[in-house]
Design a binder for these strands. Structure first.
Lengths: 359, 359
DNA sequence: CTCCATTCGGCAAACGTTTGCAACAGATTA
DNA sequence: TAATCTGTTGCAAACGTTTGCCGAATGGAG
């Protein structure tokens, strides 16, 4: 460990060639007390403009950067946010992460991202580990039980994304709305037997979709078969092709685009025409849903907006104890993976029926 | 701000209902000095097993968690790693991030992920901001100049991924090798006029591919047209379809799968058969390259391995000053987006030609 | 019984900040 | 002229740890 002589005092060069320059160095070099330097950065209005600019100049020249650990120690705020997701590699999350990160940075916060691999135990571990080094945690589509979340909540400020827990601040996408729209779209096209290709157990979103789809089909006197639960990846979507065919359903709503795409390709591979024989609808509108052929009809989730809203809620939480719950709108995007079903009305009628159902 | 009476001293409840329990509380509760508690956690062999278990028990019971900021302040190590990528939403990165994160966690490190939006200025900003709160930074496919990286390097330990800078620890994927294989594959198939659909300026990878592709085509007496530079996203791939057609080339190597997929779909949309009329090769082997139809022939990059290797290098860097450079192998994966070109040899000849070229 | 080695645990300084308090100057008011 | 106020700065305590140093206790050897 190299020792470096500097300004008459010994300093440890933690990283070779790098000497940490502190507030004290700046103070000495500009002939003021350290508290003045501190204030120059954290409460500029309290220091004489002249002094301030002098301090800033020497700080700049010396290459001073405030030590956030020290600051955190005394203020109790780290200016870090934890963001926990089930799977970074799932294309649903990156836009959310990106938005949250950019938004946080604009408020001088940094984001720690952690990946739970869809495992509730890892999830709990991560929250605990992160709790002390962040000012709050964004819990995305958690797989933990409500109880566990309640418990964790006592250790660290929390905002939950895509799960509704009473008394807990949350940002949810109203996926029920999107699912209803999707099912109505399929019914309007003349499909009377649908499949819901379910997502992972423990997912609030999954329950919401299932409930919405069930209610809407039932109300229309149509049939809904639920296949699942499944891991929300393409493989399971592809693997479900067989089962889907066996149900004789003509339309499928999948828990997410990944599964929808997997299913779509598997169906095509075994010679099933999409949307000629089977219509497929996804959820999320990930970047690839517009790239596959046929382009995927899907429910667009405002993930970026959700990320931003969650960051805002978390940062506000410090000020007052108000725990809001924000619901974001989701919308059906009709592309080419859905087409007329066996009971398709005449084109002229189509609009009329749609109008009626929507009222 | 709520004040809470506790053990006769005043404590600030930073987060309502949450009182931070410190080493001091544990010490008091278990009747030992704080240093003993500290040692129980950071140097267990120095404390009597009996005392240790008693301390651990009360710590557990009180819900004590070490304050990493305080620890960082004195040890100079934060146990955090910064990971800077150009674009989280680019599916090339998530597997790398995920691997790095998991690997780091196993060594009791956390990862901060930041996204530069492909902007070298943001990149520099981020490195500087992160420098003080992490023990080192993983710089993924940087877009900064070598000089800037050299400068930053003096502020914080660095490992660069996908860029070779002399004297700087780096993990690179030998994309030149993959590109050569890809080009040979196309030549073997009888293509004599290729296009390289280039990536972003400032990218080391881009230069490597271009150089490798150029050298290989030239050696075979074939022609290579370079189109670019381009932002590495599908849109630019799709937008390039027109230009590709104009070149009359029969095979395209793209900077990455995203662009390859964009191009592939755009070609198909305008009635060009892939691989019948044009062969397309991507690079990266992102999850979707196997999902599009035709499945994409591509160069597989060991991104997860790269992430792990980079973490290892960074953490070792602390021990000695050794700066290694690791090169990871890339491999061509032949799928369905490539087919015979206008000068295709007879099938029997094919293997022979391949053998010759490879010698 | 004395001495020494060993093991354990306490003491206190240090890490780099922030912040309440007090001091001081100069300006304003009574 | 004295009193008050305002703006600027210094002083020192705190934040929660780690760690070098030293003393106490213990046990074994002589």
């Amino acid at each position: 460990m190299a020792l470096t002589e500097r300004s008459g005092s010994h300093r440890i060069a933690i990283k070779e060639g790098t000497v940490a320059v502190t507030i004290r160095d700046v103070a000495r070099a500009s002939g003021v007390h350290i508290s003045t330097v501190s204030r120059t950065f954290s409460a500029p209005h309290l220091v004489n403009p002249e002094t301030r600019s002098r301090v800033l100049a020497t700080a700049e020249q010396l290459g001073y950067r405030p030590n956030r650990a020290a600051r955190a120690l005394i203020t109790g705020r780290t200016h870090n946010i934890g963001l926990i997701v089930a799977d970074i590699a799932n294309p649903f999350f990156p836009p959310l992460i990106k938005a949250a990160e950019t938004h946080a940075r604009r408020r001088d916060y940094h984001v720690f991202v952690a990946d739970t691999d869809e495992d509730p135990i890892v999830e709990l571990d991560l929250v605990q580990a992160l709790a002390k080094q962040v000012d709050g945690i964004l819990l995305c589509s958690p797989r933990m039980s409500d109880d566990q979340i309640e418990q964790v909540r006592r250790e660290v400020p929390l905002v939950v994304i895509n799960r509704m827990i009473t008394g807990l601040p949350a940002v949810v996408m109203d996926v029920g709305h999107g699912a209803r729209e999707a099912v109505r779209h399929l019914l309007d096209l003349g499909h009377r037997h649908l499949v819901y290709l379910a997502g992972p157990r423990g997912s609030w979103t999954n329950r919401e979709i299932r409930r919405a789809a069930g209610a809407t089909t039932r109300a229309a006197g149509a049939e809904l078969t639920v296949l699942g639960p499944n891991q929300p990846v393409e493989e399971t979507g592809a693997a479900a092709a067989e089962a889907v065919r066996r149900t004789c359903a003509t339309a499928v709503l999948a828990y997410n685009d990944l599964m929808a795409i997997g299913l779509l390709q598997a169906l095509q591979d075994r010679g099933v025409d999409v949307p000629g024989q089977v219509s497929v609808v996804g959820i999320d509108d990930i970047a690839y849903s517009g790239l596959v052929r046929p382009r995927l009809t899907t429910v667009a989730n405002p993930t970026a907006a959700a990320g931003r809203a969650a960051v805002d809620m978390l940062l506000q939480q410090g000020d007052d104890g108000a725990t809001g719950q924000v619901t974001l709108r989701t919308d059906l995007i009709i592309r080419n993976s859905t087409g007329p079903g066996p009971y398709a009305p005449a084109v002229a009628l189509n609009a009329e029926v749609a109008a009626t159902v929507k009222e």
